[in-house]
Simulated scan of single mutants.
Amino acid sequence: MSSTVNVFVVSPDTRSERRFDLHITVQQLKNKLELITGIPVPNQSISVHNAENDSNILAVLEDENRALGFYGMQDGQVLKVTDLNPSTSFTGQLSDVSQVEKFELSEEAYAQRRGTFVLLNLLESILHGMRTDTVLAYKQRHKIGRFADNEESASTPVPEVNISIGSRCEVETSEEGFHKRGTVRFVGPTKFAKSGTWVGVEYDEPIGKNDGSVQGERYFTCRQNFGVFVRPDRLKIGDFPVEEINFDDEEI
Rank of each mutant, 00 (worst) to 15 (best):
T173Q: 03
K139W: 00
S11H: 05
R113Y: 10
S47K: 07
Q224R: 08
P40F: 15
K102S: 08
E160W: 02
E202M: 10
E34W: 00
H179V: 01
S89R: 08
S167F: 04
L235N: 06
R223W: 08
T82M: 08
R231T: 05
R218A: 06
V230G: 11
G145N: 11
V60Q: 09
V97D: 05
G129A: 11
S174K: 11
L58W: 10
R19N: 02
V161P: 03
S2W: 06
S3R: 07
A67T: 12
T221P: 00
Y71G: 00
P206W: 06
K80W: 04
N225D: 03
L105I: 02
T14F: 14
R131E: 14
D133K: 11
K80S: 02
L235V: 01
Y203D: 07
L61E: 06
S47H: 06
S195E: 15
T4W: 01
K236V: 05
V184A: 12
L119Q: 14
N225T: 04
E202I: 01
L127F: 13
I237E: 05
I126V: 01
S95H: 15
R181N: 03
N150H: 12
V41C: 02
T221A: 14
H142I: 02
E217G: 00
T190G: 05
T91G: 10
T37I: 05
R223L: 05
D249K: 06
E243S: 09
P12L: 06
D54T: 03
V5Y: 09
I252Y: 09
P86H: 13
F186P: 00
D239V: 04
G115E: 15
R185E: 07
D233F: 04
N162C: 02
D75Q: 01
G145E: 12
T183E: 08
K80E: 01
D96Q: 15
K32T: 08
Q99H: 09
A193I: 03
T173F: 14
E202Q: 09
K32V: 06
F103N: 03
E64S: 15
L136K: 07
N6C: 14
V41W: 09
